[in-house]
Amino acid sequence: MPTILVVDDDAEIRDVIHMYLRNEGYTVIEAQDGIEAVDKTSSTAIDLVILDVMMPRMDGIRACMKIRDISNVPIIMLSAKEEDIDKITGLTTGADDYIGKPFNPLELLARVKAQLRRQSLLGTDTSSVLIEVRELVIDKQKHIVTVHKMPVALTPREFSILELLASHPGQVFSPAQIYERIWNEAAGYSDNTVMVHIRNLREKIERSPKEPQYIKTVWGVGYKVE
């Protein structure tokens, strides 16, 4: 049965979720903050993460971003915040679903099953060194990109941006997130810096850069690979 990581600083909430999941036969691992969640995701085979947003030491948004650096495991965000902007923030940082507190445990359980079923149908192999998006192929090990079997010369940063986006199909990354992950700088990013690299990438991999088929713009939010 799948192993589910439940992350919440409230022990009572963890206990309730644990009980419902255990009754369905799932293996449950618990963490009480974001730092512990990232550690357990990197050291244990996790099939799904239920992640609270408001936590000490490292909040759920930051933990979600770090988990996405190492895994494509489904993530369901759990938070007392129910404003649209909070949901958007959670989903654009890598979460697959979002449910507000207080929640119905049976609804949460249904969403867990839906995400696990979706992941099973996708059959994602996160350990593969090849990423294939239609005619675009990225060899992570050899640092080679081909489009229609023709090699494309990319700079190291262009390659890293493309790999980041293609490794998380459908997930939207803001310019700030791309800058932070690729340049390894938390502050001082420039939307223009990321935009220039995206434009250069499109010139190299797209048949028509003005009508991109691979790197899509989500206006007002960021970029994604479909």
Rank of each mutant, 00 (worst) to 15 (best):
D8W: 01
V194C: 03
K224V: 10
R22S: 14
R181K: 13
I178D: 00
Y20G: 00
P209G: 06
I215M: 04
G188W: 00
S71E: 11
S71R: 11
K101D: 04
L109E: 08
R157N: 02
I99H: 06
F173S: 01
G220T: 14
S42H: 06
A166W: 08
E226T: 13
I99A: 05
I46K: 04
D9Q: 05
T155R: 10
S71V: 09
P2G: 04
L165C: 03
N200V: 02
N200R: 15
D52C: 08
V6H: 09
H148M: 11
P102T: 00
V53G: 03
R68V: 10
E158A: 12
G94P: 04
L5S: 01
I76G: 08
V221N: 14
M65V: 11
L91T: 05
G34K: 11
R181Q: 05
T93K: 11
K140G: 01
M195N: 14
E203C: 03
E107L: 11
V152N: 07
P151V: 01
R22M: 04
I85L: 12
N192A: 11
M150G: 00
A186V: 12
A114V: 08
D59Y: 06
R199F: 13
G220I: 14
T92P: 02
G34F: 12
E206A: 07
E107D: 14
E135G: 00
N184I: 01
L116S: 02
R134K: 15
L91Y: 05
K40V: 15
T124E: 09
M58A: 02
I35S: 09
V53S: 06
V145P: 03
P2A: 09
P212S: 03
I161D: 06
L164M: 15
V137L: 14
I182D: 00
T89I: 11
V6L: 10
Y20T: 06
I76K: 08
L154S: 12
A176E: 03
R207M: 09
M77H: 10
Y179E: 00
I4T: 05
E158N: 08
L108C: 09
L78P: 01
R62E: 15
V38N: 12
A31T: 12
I35W: 04
T146A: 08
V38W: 13
I17Q: 04
D125Q: 11
D59Q: 04
G222Y: 12
V28F: 05
S174L: 01
V218R: 15
D8V: 01
V172W: 03
I67E: 12
E180G: 00
F103S: 02
G170T: 02
R207H: 12
D33C: 04
R134V: 05
L91A: 05
D39C: 05
K113D: 14
Y189V: 00
V73K: 07
R111H: 10
I75C: 07
A114H: 03
F173E: 03
D52P: 09
E12F: 00
Q32V: 09
V53E: 09
S128N: 13
K113V: 11
D10C: 04
A95G: 10
V218Q: 15
E36D: 14
A95E: 11
V28Y: 03
A187K: 15
E226K: 13
